[in-house]
Amino acid sequence: MNPLLNEDEQAARAAARTMAAEAFSVGAATPEAIGAAAASVTAADGVQSNLHMTLAVEEIARVAPAAGAAVGSVAAAALVLREAGQEPNGLAVCVGGGSVSADESGVAGTSEPVPAAQYADRFIVIGDDAVWMAAGAATSADLDGLAGSGLARVEVSSGEQIGGADLAQLGRAVLRLQQSAVAVGISAAAQDAALTAIADAKESGGAPDRSQAVQWALADIATEAEAARVATWHSACADTTDQGSAMALVLATDAAAKAVRLAAKIGGVESAAAGGRMAELQRDAKLVELLGGGAAAQLGTIADALLPDVPRA
């Protein structure tokens, strides 16, 4: 049993941290930067690529959640394409949910909002039992949060089937995993922001780090983030079932929502400053919590696996 990163994985994480700082720390992410980042984090093979994706997306999201979401979306699609034996040309994203139907007979409908969809030239539609490469038209989702991530709904109309139930299951898992990684990155960003707020207050003569309320809030942020992180890593490496990836996503989005709330309390009223880091993180965490059907969808997925002989009422 070795639930610790090995040397290669630590190096990959460090490289992603450097890349995040260089490519995404200032301004909106460009499609070129998103594509390049996604290509680099999906360069590894097999299980390794799932883990590398989560490590890199967490680090990017820690610096810029919107960029993390966009890179994760493109990287997840690249992993699905590779598994389907398709050439990773252009910039693809996975879509699903909403009114989309995708089965053996065809594909149609409008998807839920997906990061990077505005920049994509190909759409991979994940159905229950089939995966399609489809043509589509993206429409800006105009949601509050993840600004600059290229979030859009996609109307899909026609295409070719590239996989069956197994690929669909993998697609759902990697989509959840990249979303989990974004959420873990937001938790880490919230912790960073709280530590910055504490440091700023100390420079002004305060001593918030001696406040027990602040200490406990920091501890809770770190604890929830760590729980989400190990669940995400574990799912990436050892459990890409619907149940495993849904557990990671529930834990990660719950942790992110709690982390930004506690970090905002530590920062005080400045946390509500329009356009400020804390306010942005709160919006991003809320949106990540809601994308992909939200916690209710994930909990339903877990319960279906736990109670296979008891159908939902």
Binding site: A231, A246, V250, L299, I302, A303, D304, L306, L307, R312
Partner: peptide, 10 residues
């Protein structure tokens, strides 16, 4: 069902 799912995740 949702409570059971959350328990399993925790």
């Amino acid at each position: 069902r949702h409570e059971l799912g959350r328990m399993a995740a925790e």
